[in-house]
Design a protein around this nucleic acid. Structure first.
Lengths: 191, 191
DNA sequence: ACTAGACTAAACAGATCGGTATACCCGTCA
DNA sequence: TGACGGGTATACCGATCTGTTTAGTCTAGT
């Protein structure tokens, strides 16, 4: 993580808030510059293009989420792997309550960026694959019979809970997902 | 379903393809009119505004999905309610293969339309509530102990599978979801 | 024959889009 | 002292945005 100049820091913060809150295509660079108290010249000197700024926004969001998730999981003792898996759902619930009311920022970004050549697409893809890999790791630590299959299921529960939370379509999607995860663990021989 | 004039029909078809394929905010009315072989005047006479056109697009998409889903489910005999529930996942898989490669059109639309006053938001909300209600109905027919809880779980599996399919993050998200649904049925006393 | 509705063609608003250019200010460090 | 990096301010570019306006054509039903 290279350090940003103060102005670049403000630009990235403003971009994060506006992109997530209003959508990427709905937010222009002028608005971002204004919110950051910065000129467009500075914005372009620091980030080069809107595309690159979008990618930087998603990269930082990814870093924050990874940091949060792993820190929360590490609060559960290594001696209790199943509890560490369940902790990912508690972490997800707290995260969404805090800064994900509009659903997954990566899913939302993918919805707006159909062009597979957009630099942000790589960041989105990396994010999902990292989470899948992390869940697989936890599944293996827990001694699951088929850690790959369990990781697939856990990832699906995470994504389902996140999207339903964003749509306010269920009262407690994270709780529902957590309950299903518990059964998935039993099924995988992790009781 | 009020009948549309020929030009309106072409506008709605073009809007559906472009909105879903490129995103709502990324597609202008000029482009839609051009694709439909129609002037902007006609477009505005038939639909009133872009907002209303977006809502009409989602309404029709909703109708098509409902029709497809219920038809597929009705292929399974009424005497076998659990099979009817599993059929919703088979229907989802076929639907996405056919016309949902970029994920759920409603989730994508919600990502682009943060304004809760946008007329399309109501359509999106209705869509999710209808599906939840339909799954609850099927759960009740199957004699689930707690049909509400089962419907929540099934909805979560549907949404999770759809979003992962759109991100190409798992090889077979629908199959994963279907397997989890099977276990959810057993848990609910529907075996 | 008349009319109402559906449509085309094309220009026009005013605002905003991503991105660039010119000119200047100010603190740090050599 | 002087160069340099980070920054501000402002104006500008061509393109595109949603939406409107004026003018006129074609066709079906009465």
């Amino acid at each position: 993580m290279e350090t940003l100049t103060p102005a670049a820091r403000r630009v990235l913060d403003a971009a994060a808030e506006l992109f997530y809150g209003q959508g990427i295509n709905a937010v222009g660079v002028d608005l971002i510059a204004k919110h950051a108290g910065v000129t467009k010249k500075t914005l372009y000197e620091r980030f080069g293009s809107k595309e690159a700024l979008v990618a930087a926004y998603l990269r930082e969001r990814d870093e924050r989420w990874r940091g949060w998730l792993t820190a929360e999981v590490d609060k559960a003792p290594r001696q209790d792997p199943p509890d560490r898996i369940l902790a990912t759902f508690d972490a997800l619930g707290a995260w969404m309550h805090r800064e994900n009311p509009r659903g997954c920022g990566f899913v939302n970004a993918a919805a707006e960026l159909p062009d597979t050549g957009h630099p942000a697409r790589q960041v989105i893809s990396d994010q999902k694959h990292w989470l899948r890999g992390y869940l697989r790791e936890l599944s293996e630590d827990a001694g699951a019979e088929d850690p790959d299959a369990l990781a697939d299921e856990l990832l699906l529960l995470h994504e389902g809970a996140t999207v339903l939370y964003g749509l306010s379509a269920l009262p407690d999607p994270v709780g529902t997902a957590r309950g299903m995860a518990l059964r998935a663990l039993e099924q995988a021989g992790v009781g």
